[in-house]
Amino acid sequence: MGRSEDYDFSASNEMLLELCKLQDQEALRVLFRRHEKPVYNLLYRMLSNHEDAEEALADVFVKVWRGAGSFKGESKFTTWLFKIAANTARDFLRARMVRREVSLEDGSVSEGEVARSAAAKSIDPEDCTVREDELNRITAALDGLSEDDRLLVTLYHFQGLDYQDISEITGISANNLKVKLFRARQRLKKLCEELDGGCVENELRRSTTDSSGLRQGACEWS
């Protein structure tokens, strides 16, 4: 006993959380292994950065460990976990914003950070080279959304959660949520179309100036 392998894999999340309350680190390990990927996926979509997403992932499970006693069983464990993850992502985004402001004030911000910051604030359709594939384009479009819109789109489209769960995680009523999600989705779609259009236009411009024609077809999405 004592090793995670000793637990029946079907042991419920709630039972493992009970063990976490009793300071059983192996129970936390099982919970971590079971949920790290979906939680990380949410964090990465929110933070668009592997380093921050990993740091946030660790924070989420430290919060699970410390806050195991606060789980009342009124909602599903996964809903509770995603709520912690969403709040952690928000904390990271706020901290990042504060760091950026401080860096800009004292002039210590690097050119790369300024470029990333600009990319996050507004999508540059001309910048086709850094968004050569579909995944990068979706990520860039997500970056252009507000924090709340990004969370809604991520929970619904990338985590596959239903309205009820998203409503519990975000605290938005189910009817209001449908409207907000529709609007967020339309904004994302528009950003994607801008990027698609920018890539196509950029590519057309390149193909006319590039006599070798080797770069033709790099942005095939239209």
Partner: peptide, 12 residues
């Protein structure tokens, strides 16, 4: 879906 690059469990 994206997955963590490093094993974060050691940190936790």
């Amino acid at each position: 879906p994206v997955e963590p690059v490093n094993d974060v469990w050691a940190l936790v």
